[in-house]
Design a binder for these strands. Structure first.
Lengths: 375, 375
DNA sequence: TGAGCCTCCGAAACCGGTTTCGGCAAGTGT
DNA sequence: ACACTTGCCGAAACCGGTTTCGGAGGCTCA
């Protein structure tokens, strides 16, 4: 026994000994191996015996210890998740729902969830490597995919199962689940165009992420379908401040957009700031549509029109796909695409101004309000 | 070999065999036992040998498999967390930070985190039991404590280590970490009283939770200290709608409060709704202070004055306390209380109206605005 | 010089499962 | 009646670690 620093251990930790497979075997007068094979549906066990064993195990409250089993089988029945929490991270608010979906589905299949968090791409890779190396999970869920994703390269090289939440540039051999945000962007453009908007601005999201590419493409496709070509696109914006800056830039153009479509709600919140500063009323002077269904959007005035993503469902689907992938199904068959649902707020409507009139309004407001007022 | 439903397994999963303790032993020409004892700091190993083993293990990239170790030691080096996600749940937005703190601290100590989610108190207990029974964790973090908490009873009875995020009525033998929200409530009252408010309303949180009791007590203590006794307390409010209802009730009194203190930001958002509906301007006509530091508060107009809780720090502290508790330290020594920090927004200020004047304003607005207008 | 005591290590049991292997008994075909 | 399956189970190895036990060798001390 090591001396170590075994500090004050409480008087007696009672802990009743748990019932092992040997206990069940003894009770029945058979061997451990027999019990194990019976419980694991080996074909060389008679149905009568199998039932007898099942009954005894049930009655004695036997439950196999997953880590004891793992040493032989190599499966810990756990799925891993590394959550990257950058400051400008849109997925924070959905984390709870995502986890809920994952955990619920995992629990239903008698799996558990091991998580780690990280603060940067490099850290994410490190945490992933650690979980994989320590074999704390049999497979991984990879949220927020990049077009070129180092996590995918790593897991591919290691031959470890994984499923993407989102897509990636080269998805050969990848299982994935995604919400079709590109289609949502196109839908939003069609909606705005139908209301009469002719100049529609776009605020993209984080560069390098796959969702950004897909939403840009969706926006462009929507514009083409509406036969519009005047499409000012701002710099990327991932948070409120960047969203405000993007909106200022768009509104400062000679022919500013009468509607701004944001790849993320986080940016849309900033658009509200900029619009307010420019004396524009949202929903009339300027239409805004976001994407994500952020809680903040609902408390804005007017409430933000946006697309809602069912994160819990995503988590459940991802878990299902991953477990099947671990079980050996071909990842190429494990792909799923769900639509996002539009949730109208009060931030979009028919244009009340032409772009030229809007430009005049903005210029005027820049004149009267003392510069640098915005909080 | 079981026939089972072993579906399409990919061509060949390469998986290089990992280096085991036996490999290290062979390399050195010693026994497995020797290597194990050397690596685990047993005292019967000469320093020279220990160093030789360490170097070889390091060089060969040996890392012990936690679940192989667990079968003998009974420790899986994982801490468990069951997150209850009711719909009216204030902790959702802080979950990311809390997890981040927990995971970071755990990872630093070479522990991992196993989570489960639940949808009700009963489910929480069930999930907890499952994790404990399957021995997926060596100890548990219990967020959002109740005054009388079934989880605590269960874990006490099982003799399993745990740490509370929050306190409980009878905390004998409990390790806990908490943020002193009671003191925050008292501080808010002192602030409002200092500004000249004489009638201050209180909107409590979820009944049965320990935080609700502590914040009520903190509010009461603050009122006593400020020598104020007119303290209307509304029904509990845990979400926006309930917060609005609570505010309407408070404002409908003969002598309505000129400031409303909310146990949670979620309720405070509803207070904004009610105030707006009553034609009151927040920060002047009516002061509002919340607690939690909800992101929604920052996008309100004016931004909500509230108390910020450092959830990441909480997670890190909880993890530290739990690991020490598992190591055998006396839980009674493992307790920690941090202050919340006030984050002023624009929602509080000196009263511009007396309660009587406020009552008149409210009554007037009830008259002019057509009823049932509020969204 | 011999008894007694450390120091340090090998050998082997052990933890709770899984998996392989061999063999007995009953059934089958001729 | 005899070889050949087949069904079913016991025995034992195995997985990757940890822990106990005993003993060889060197040292001290009377």
């Amino acid at each position: 026994m090591p001396t170590k620093t075994t500090a004050h251990r409480p008087p007696t930790r009672p802990r009743k000994r748990r019932v092992t497979i040997a206990d069940v075997a003894n009770e029945l007068g058979v061997t451990k191996g027999l019990v194990s094979r019976a419980l694991n549906d080996y074909p060389d066990i008679s149905e009568a015996t199998r039932e007898r064993v099942r009954a005894a195990a049930e009655a004695m409250g036997y439950r196999a210890l997953s880590h004891a089993r793992a040493i032989r089988t190599g499966q810990v029945r756990a799925l891993g998740l590394v959550i990257q929490l950058s400051d400008h991270d849109g997925q924070r608010p959905f984390l709870a729902d995502l986890l809920s979906g994952i955990s619920q589905a995992a629990s239903a299949a008698d799996w558990t969830v091991t998580i780690a968090t990280s603060t940067s791409d490099a850290d994410t890779l490190h945490q992933l490597g650690h979980l994989a190396d320590a074999h704390k999970a049999d497979g991984f869920i990879l949220p927020r995919t990049y077009e070129h994703d180092a996590r995918i390269d790593y897991l591919r090289a290691e031959g470890l199962p994984f499923v993407l939440y989102g897509r990636t540039a080269d998805d050969t051999g990848c299982a994935w689940y995604d919400v079709d945000s590109g289609a949502a962007m196109a839908e939003a453009v069609a909606l705005l165009a139908g209301l009469g908007h002719r100049v529609i601005g776009f605020v993209p999201g984080a560069t390098g992420t796959m969702y950004d590419r897909l939403r840009r493409e969706g926006f462009a496709a929507g514009m083409r379908a509406a036969h519009l070509d005047t499409a000012p696109v701002s710099d990327p914006a991932c948070d409120r401040a960047q969203g405000a800056a993007a909106a200022r830039a768009l509104l400062g153009r000679d022919l500013p957009p009468t509607a701004i479509l944001c790849a993320t709600d986080a940016a849309a919140v900033g658009v509200y700031d900029a619009a307010r500063a420019a004396g524009l009323s949202i929903g009339t002077d300027l239409s805004v549509i976001g994407y994500d269904g952020l809680p903040e959007g609902a408390v804005l005035d007017p409430p933000l029109s946006t697309f809602h993503v069912d994160a819990a469902r995503a988590g459940a689907r991802l878990t299902d796909l991953l477990i099947r992938s671990i079980a050996g199904e071909d990842p190429a068959d494990l792909r799923d695409l769900d639509p996002a649902t539009f949730r109208p707020g009060g931030s979009h409507g028919a244009p009340t101004l032409t772009p030229a009139e809007l430009a005049a309004r903005v210029a005027h407001s820049n004149h009267v309000s003392n510069p640098g007022r915005e909080r």
